[in-house]
Design a protein around this nucleic acid. Sequence first.
DNA 1: TCGCTAACGAACAAAACGTCCGATTTGTAC
DNA 2: GTACAAATCGGACGTTTTGTTCGTTAGCGA
Lengths: 187, 187
Amino acid sequence: MDRRQRKTRKAIFSAFTQLLARKNYNEITVQDIVERADIGRTTFYSHFETKEFLLRDLCGELFGHIIETAMGLPKAHYHYVACEPTDSVFLHLVRHLQENDRSILELLASPNDQIFLGYFKDGLVKMITSQYAAEGRLGKGGLPEGFLVNHMAASFVETIAWWLSRGMPESAEVITGYFLATVEPLL
Amino acid sequence: MDRRQRKTRKAIFSAFTQLLARKNYNEITVQDIVERADIGRTTFYSHFETKEFLLRDLCGELFGHIIETAMGLPKAHYHYVACEPTDSVFLHLVRHLQENDRSILELLASPNDQIFLGYFKDGLVKMITSQYAAEGRLGKGGLPEGFLVNHMAASFVETIAWWLSRGMPESAEVITGYFLATVEPLL
DNA sequence: TCGCTAACGAACAAAACGTCCGATTTGTAC
DNA sequence: GTACAAATCGGACGTTTTGTTCGTTAGCGA
C-alpha cells in the first residue's frame, strides 16, 4: 500500500476515533471526519464507500488485532479457566486493553459503547469457539454448547462494560475473577 | 389527549415500528415515517422533536409496560429464582413476550436489536434492583451487588437474544431454565 | 352551535450526501 | 534523477433530508 494511502487511512481512523469517543455515531458526519482529518472530501470517498464501511474496517482492525493476539497465546492459558485468574486468557485480554489499547477502552466507554461491545463480543465468540469448544470443555452443565459460548462472550463483555462504567476501580485480576466466577459453575 | 393526537401518535408509532423491523435505524428518515404513517411533515414535528425522541418514547411505552407488569406480579413469583422455572418472574416475562408483545419480539430480532436489547436490559436492571436487591438476596457468591444485578439483567437479555436469533425453537420453560442455570449458582 | 387547536401542505434555507473533473502533488520503479 | 502512475486536492454539481414558517382546512369537545 502506498505511503500516501497509509497516511490518509491513518488520519481518517484517528479523526473518526476521536469523534466516536465523544459524539454519537449517528451525529458524526463525513464532513466532520474530513475536516478533522484534514483531507479532501473526494479522498475520503476513494477510501471508504460510506461511513458504515469505515466503522466496519476500524472495528476489524481494532478487535481483529486484540483477538488474534489472544488466540496466539500458548494453549496453557486456556486450560484452567476457573479458580485462579492467573494466566487465564481473559486476564491477558484485560491487561492488553489496559496497557496497549487505551483507544479501545475509550471507545468501549464512549456514547457508542454498544457498537463496540458488539464487535468485541463477536470476536470473543470466535475465540471461545475455536479454543474451548474444540476441546470439548463446554456443556458440562446440561446447557447447549452454542448457548454457553454466547453466554461466556456476553458475560465477559458485560463485565468489562460494568467495570469501565464506574471508572475501573478494580484491578485487572479482581475484575477477571468476577467474570470467571460467573462462568466457572457452568463448565 | 385529543382523539386526533392519539390517532396521529399511534400512526407514527406503527409506521416507525414497521420500519424498524426491517431497516437500520440510521437509514430510516423522517420522510419515510411520515409517508408510511400518511401524515403531514409538520404534524410529525409537532409530536416529536427529533427521530431520537420518537425512539425514546416508543421504547418507554413498550418496555415500561412489560416491566411494570412484571413488577406488579405477586411477590411469590420472585422468591425461588432457581431450580424450577415454574412461577419465576422471568418465565412470566418470556410468556408475556411470546403471547402479548409480538411487536417487541420483532424489534428484538430486527437489525436494530442492539437498541432494544439495551432498553430491555435497563428496564430489567430497575426491576431486579427493586425486587431482589431490596430483599438482600444477592451477593452470596462474594460478588458485589451492582455487579450481580447487571449480570442478571444482561444474562437474561442475552438469553432472549440467543433464543430469537435461532427462531425460538425451545419452549418458554426450557429457555427460562437455561437462563436460571446461569444465575442460580451466584445467588 | 361555537371556539379551540390539531393537521395539512406548500415553500423555505441550511446542511449533508455522493459524484464529477481538471489540476497538482507525491510515491515508486526504472 | 527522471518519468510514469496514482493519490490528493478543491471546487462545483444536483439531490435528499432536515427543521421551520404560515395560512388554510377540518375535527374535537364543551
